[in-house]
């Protein structure tokens, strides 16, 4: 039944595109509403019929995965949730996968946020991933949620020299001094890795400029797809790896499931979302080709495009 659905939807989409291609040779423009319909179909069909693919990690994703994988047990890793619900479909899968990876490898994980909305998304990761999957881990010992703090880059400027000045307590008002995890952490310089998740400002770039470079701490980033190209100048010296958009999340999930048997059956929203995204990309590429055919046909006829 599932296969029949996939075949019917693919025939519909590609048949329709072929028909539009033939029409474009005659110089016919495609109406905006037709494009919207095709995008809807190309996104809906893989969601309904669960079309997924195997991913292969690109070097930028592999670099971050390997960096996290090869940290010694007991390393201090900070995860900053600097994003909002609009970015969550792209960034939250990365956040979940990286949290699983770090906690599974026995690192001490500090969760924080520079965005007010990040705190609730952090709570989502904690309550839906960490608490059910790692019940043996103890809050304040193996991981800690120090919450959100207003002040943007100012917060980073302070914690680069002293965490307690900006975060005297964790999110539950427990003084940081009384927590096991913060025994050996005074400032960001005591961290072994920072993972900045986001895409806006303040975000990964600010983590590099205000913390990564001054404190000499490696920074890895997970960002929305539109932001990823802007971070390439910082790779590989100032940023050790980049996860860009759903594709980056899917590649990281693939690496995690293939390297750690424990996660073989974990939820992989990144990989699941690659089906709709891939088919939508094919449709967009087809429309770009059709648009160019129409353009050259109308130019050949001396028409206005």
């Amino acid at each position: 039944m599932n296969n029949i659905g996939i075949i019917i939807s693919l025939v519909l989409i590609f048949g329709g595109l072929l028909w539009l291609l033939i029409r474009s040779i005659g110089g016919h423009e495609v109406d905006r509403r037709v494009i919207f319909l095709f995008i809807f179909l190309s996104v809906a069909a893989p969601v309904i019929f669960r079309i997924t693919f195997q991913e292969k990690a690109t070097p930028v994703v592999e670099a971050l995965f390997d960096r996290i994988e090869n940290l010694p047990p007991g390393s201090n890793v900070l995860l900053s949730f600097d994003f909002d619900p609009a970015m969550a479909p792209e960034v939250q899968p990365m956040a979940n996968a990286i949290s699983r990876h770090c906690l599974n490898n026995g690192y001490n994980v500090v969760f924080m946020s520079l965005w007010a909305t990040g705190q609730s998304l952090m709570t989502t990761t904690l309550s839906r991933v960490i608490l059910p999957e790692f019940p043996e881990l103890v809050d304040g010992v193996d991981y800690i949620n120090i919450g959100y703090k207003a002040g943007n880059e100012g917060v980073l400027n302070v914690i680069v020299s002293d965490f307690r000045k900006m975060f005297p307590t964790d999110v539950n008002s427990v003084p940081l001094d009384s927590t096991e995890i913060f025994k050996d952490i005074k400032s960001c310089a005591d961290l072994d890795l920072i993972i900045a998740l986001g895409g806006g400002r303040p975000g990964p770039k600010e983590w590099v400029l205000f913390v990564g470079d001054p404190a000499d701490v490696p920074v890895g980033v997970g960002v929305a797809a539109v932001v990823a190209p802007q971070l390439y100048p910082y790779y590989p010296q100032q940023i050790v790896g980049i996860l860009g958009g759903v594709k980056g999340a899917a590649e990281y999930e693939q690496e995690l499931t293939s390297h750690h048997e424990r996660f073989a059956d974990m939820d992989t929203p990144g990989i699941d979302m690659m089906g709709p995204q891939t088919l939508a990309h094919v449709v967009i590429m087809a429309f770009i080709v059709i648009g160019n055919i129409v353009y050259f046909r109308s130019r050949g006829k001396g028409g206005k495009s």
């Binding site: 809807f40 996104v43 770009i288 353009y295």
Partner: peptide, 18 residues
């Protein structure tokens, strides 16, 4: 945010021309 997909597709069709 996801509505962008529709507008990006429409914009790509009209703008990405050689």
């Amino acid at each position: 945010f996801s509505l962008l997909a529709f507008f990006i597709a429409s914009a790509a069709y009209r703008a990405f021309r050689a």
